[in-house]
Amino acid sequence: MTSPASSSEVKYLIESSEGNTFDVSGAALRQSNTFNAMFLNIGADGPIPFTDYNEATLKKVFEYCEHSVNEENYSGPKHQDDLSKWDLNFFNEMDQKMFIDVINASNFLDIERLTSYCCERIARMLRGKNTQEMIKVITLPTAEELEAKQKVEEKKAAAAKKVAEKAAETAEKTETLEELPVQQLVQTTRNKLTRKYLSFSNE
């Protein structure tokens, strides 16, 4: 059950790639700019499909969001040394695959704080090293791997389109219930969706 109300008590249903659904609080979800652009004001009719990411990844991402609900407003990238004990544990308990999945999901959901901390963590792997040492730290992909990455990006753009369509569909339903203010809301949402979709397509 989802609701357009903005109270932090409101829960939203999230659907993962396995088709599983789970609850996330509105307060946590609002840290995602992608969500804000699509569903915040109009609510979602049914589960929100983030089906490009598995349940474990999405739960990990929203675990972070739930934890940082009560933290002060995000004010730009934080140095790794300034991370709290909880933040450090959060990152340390992930293996590399999960870490990469979390970065990808956080990037798609546009959660600034989490994405920024992930980036800082990667930058830290390279910091203070010379070129030879950097080469040892990173894997240099083959042409085939780069091609595969391109396909993944295209798939993500398609997924973003799917989510956008879902939001637009919800918006249209809302449009029939209320008059002018909602229409304006829908138009705003559509504009945001178009921008978001275009940005994914351009990547």
């Binding site: 590399q96 930058a123 990173i138 990455k149």
Partner: peptide
């Protein structure tokens, strides 16, 4: 080894910015 170039471009840009 970390697959740096597998990251989405915006994330990669953010990493470069941190260096």
């Amino acid at each position: 080894p970390f697959p740096l170039l597998h990251l989405p471009q915006l994330v990669l840009f953010e990493v470069f910015k941190s260096l």
